[in-house]
Every structure is written in structure tokens, then in C-alpha cells.
């Protein structure tokens, strides 16, 4: 089964041949490994030169990011500074020159740092077929439809409202043991709307809904966030892997969430 590579001018054309033994290749940082290691589940690579993949456009405070934009490109773009820290936490410099934001949405754990951040930011996906869907909905369903993400739209958070922390064992960088992203609006010193997302705490990036609720209206101090911390691993299913045990992840998740919440105030 040698590999056949098919190129298309538009994403829509490319999306039509997907499925079965054909896989869409973006930056290739995950897919090429499978090719190199002789994965038998596919024998066609589908790529596209659609310029829409590389676009970055803003409409008001909403920004549309092409799925083919790389981590390095995010770091360099003046309007994407709020995602700069997230992009910088992915891989090493060479990986960041290749890894796309679109591919990150499909990356299995321990990857998916950008997806975790985008989940906290309540991003939306635009598919090549023209459909739209929230990232949250996409992550929830297990049977990923065979279509291509065309672009991702996300609202620019108010200054200081978005916080991100990636915990890894290797310095200066390594894969994530767990990742936390928080979007937190404040109303009169108390917390308003909150979204908390964990990476590495479940097969896919997942919101900590119980913790979000517990933080609603709370004051941002040790005692105020107590209930939120106690609830933050509810509904999570962290892995037992070579990076850490699930026990350990459950123990340290509240610790890191606390650091993230308190460092801001």
C-alpha cells in the first residue's frame, strides 16, 4: 500500500474525497509520523492550496483564523497576541513552523493545547461544507465527521480576562501533563461569566462546568475560589500514562487552577 498524494485547489474539492482510506494533511506533524511508521489505515493523503487556509481577518472583536495558520504565524500576528503564549507553548520552534491551528483540534492527548485555549474562548468552527459549529459541540461528539475545518472564529477577550497555563515535565518545553485555560469576566470585583477548560484531563479538551458554576459571583481570593477548586475535576477522566498517573493529575489540577486564578488578582 504505497501512499498516493492528491492536491486540490479548494478545500471543498478536497473534502469531497475524504473518508475511507484518504486523510487530509495539514502541517503533517502528526500525520507524517503515521505515514513514516506504516499506518495501514489509510493510503491517500489529501492536501489543498486553498488561500483561505492562511487568512487572518477581523470583524469587530471577532477574528477569523484560517485552519492552516501555523503556531509561528499566530505568534507573529499583532491581532492574535492573546493566543501568542498558547502558540509558543506548542512543541519546539520547528514544530511551531509546521503545526497548524486546525490540526491541533484533532490532536489526541497529550496534545491539543491550542484546542484547550480555544475551548475556553468559546471558538466556532467553519467547515469546508459551509456548516458552522461551536468547538465545544465538535469536541463532545466522538465520531468526527469527515470534513475539513476551513477556519476558526474567536472573540478577542477583554484585556486580562484570558489566562493560560501549561504544565509539563521537560523544561523549557515538553508535552502537556495538563493544560488549563480560563476566560473570566469580572463585574464589580466579583466574577461574572466564566469558562474553564482543561487539556490532558480527559481524552479531549473538556470544560469544568461544575467549577465554572462554583466560581460564578465568587470573590477571587483563597476562600472565594475554594468551592470551585473542589469541583474542578468533576466529570474529568485523566489518563494513566508515562507522563503521570490519573491520581496525580486529579491531585494537581486544583493546585494549578488556583495558581492561575489567584495570579490574576
Amino acid at each position: 500500500m504505497s501512499i498516493e498524494v492528491k492536491s486540490f485547489d479548494t478545500l471543498r474539492q478536497a473534502s469531497e474525497v475524504l473518508g475511507g482510506s484518504a486523510q487530509y494533511i495539514a502541517g503533517g506533524t502528526l500525520l507524517m509520523r503515521k505515514v513514516n511508521y506504516g499506518d495501514q489505515s489509510f493510503n491517500q493523503l489529501v492536501q489543498s492550496t486553498d488561500p483561505a487556509l492562511k487568512q487572518i481577518q477581523s470583524q469587530g472583536d471577532e477574528i477569523l483564523i484560517g485552519a492552516g495558520v501555523t503556531m509561528s504565524e499566530i505568534m507573529q500576528h499583532p491581532q492574535l497576541q492573546f493566543l501568542g503564549e498558547v502558540a509558543r507553548s506548542v512543541g519546539g520552534p520547528a514544530i511551531r513552523n509546521m503545526a497548524t491551528i486546525g490540526g491541533n483540534l484533532f490532536a489526541p492527548r497529550p496534545y491539543g493545547d491550542m484546542a484547550t485555549a480555544l475551548l475556553a474562548l468559546d471558538a466556532n468552527l467553519h467547515w469546508a461544507s459551509g456548516q458552522q459549529q461551536s468547538l465545544e459541540q465538535f469536541l463532545e461528539r466522538s465520531d468526527a465527521a469527515r470534513d475539513i475545518v476551513h477556519s476558526i472564529s474567536v472573540r478577542q477577550p477583554p484585556t486580562g480576562a484570558f489566562q493560560y497555563l501549561k504544565v509539563s515535565r521537560v523544561k523549557p518545553k515538553g508535552v502537556s501533563l495538563l493544560t488549563v485555560a480560563v476566560l473570566l469576566n469580572r463585574e464589580n470585583g466579583r466574577t461574572g461569566n466564566v469558562r474553564i477548560a482543561f487539556g490532558g484531563m480527559a481524552p479531549e479538551p473538556r470544560r469544568a462546568m461544575a467549577a465554572e458554576q462554583a466560581l460564578q459571583g465568587a470573590s477571587l481570593d483563597e476562600s472565594g475560589i475554594q468551592r470551585c477548586l473542589a469541583a474542578c475535576t468533576e466529570g474529568m477522566a485523566p489518563a494513566d500514562d508515562s507522563l503521570a498517573s490519573s491520581w496525580y493529575r486529579n491531585e494537581v489540577a486544583p493546585v494549578y487552577l488556583k495558581r492561575l486564578l489567584l495570579q490574576r488578582s
Binding site: M32, R33, N36, G91, A94, N97, M98
Partner: peptide, 27 residues
């Protein structure tokens, strides 16, 4: 490694470092 983790295959493409083991040659 053939999986991008070791960096021994690093080359510059248009001046930027990339991992040649993960680059589709025809690209």
C-alpha cells in the same frame, strides 16, 4: 526518530527550521 521528537533532521525551509522527517517531500 521519524516522528519529530528528536530534531536530528532539522533543515531550514525558506530560512525557517522544520523537521524534514515530517515534511512531505513534494511540498
Amino acid at each position: 526518530c521519524g516522528q519529530g521528537t528528536c530534531g536530528a533532521c532539522t533543515v531550514l525551509i525558506n530560512g525557517e527550521p522544520q523537521l524534514s522527517c515530517l515534511v512531505l517531500a513534494e511540498r
